Amino acid sequence: MGYCISHEEGTIKIKKENMKIILQTLSDYFKSNTLRWVDGFDINEIDLGTDKEDHSWDDDYEEDELMSIEDVWSDLRYEIKEEDNFYIITDFLGEKYGDDDTFFKIIAPYCEDGFLQFSGEDGEHFRFIIKDGEFEEKTASLDWE
């Protein structure tokens, strides 16, 4: 069982042109690695909006077989929304299992600067921060002096 956390504030933006790169990088990672909270995916299972081929001849083709980008991110435990030229991580859906840093280190080079702030089940506050393509986790501290 993980550490229960709640998203408090903050967003992380991803330029639309970087989304395919992020998903391909994660797909490659999942070929030989796992994260505790997701089995992974294959880039070929995702509707990236680039399939313009006519499949009317193929009786076995089902467009519904492909996952949407939103579904992939939901499986990754993050809610995203599309806005202008960006996908924006707006919420977290799960528990912290300890390898979130691995996930964010993979995607950080393709994200805009931003942060997600959380509070934990024990009252701890921390942020996942992306700045200049690098990931850092910072924990808040209370100082009485």
Rank of each mutant, 00 (worst) to 15 (best):
E63Q: 14
E63S: 15
D64P: 06
D64S: 15
L66P: 13
L66C: 11
L66S: 14
L66W: 14
M67G: 04
M67K: 15
M67R: 14
S68Y: 07
S68F: 07
I69Y: 02
E70Y: 11
E70D: 13
D71G: 02
D71N: 08
D71K: 09
V72T: 11
V72F: 04
W73N: 11
D75F: 03
L76Y: 07
L76A: 05
L76P: 02
R77D: 13
Y78C: 07
E79F: 04
E79H: 10
E79C: 06
I80H: 11
K81R: 15
K81C: 12
K81H: 08
E82P: 06
N85D: 14
N85K: 11
F86C: 07
Y87P: 03
Y87G: 02
Y87H: 04
I88M: 00
T90V: 13
D91N: 14
F92R: 01
F92W: 02
L93A: 00
L93Y: 05
G94M: 01
G94P: 03
E95L: 00
K96V: 00
K96D: 06
Y97P: 01
G98N: 06
D99K: 09
D99R: 09
D99L: 06
D100F: 08
D100H: 12
D101Y: 10
T102D: 05
F103H: 11
F103A: 05
F103I: 03
F104T: 09
F104Y: 12
I106C: 06
I107N: 10
I107K: 10
A108F: 03
P109Q: 13
P109W: 13
P109M: 08
Y110K: 08
Y110E: 09
C111T: 14
C111N: 10
E112C: 07
E112H: 02
D113H: 05
G114F: 02
L116M: 08
L116F: 01
L116Y: 01
Q117M: 04
S119P: 06
E121L: 01
D122N: 15
G123R: 10
G123T: 08
E124R: 12
E124N: 10
H125E: 13
F126A: 04
R127F: 03
F128I: 10
F128A: 12
F128S: 12
I129P: 08
I129K: 11
I129L: 12
I130W: 11
K131G: 09
K131P: 10
D132R: 14
D132L: 07
D132W: 13
G133R: 14
E134S: 15
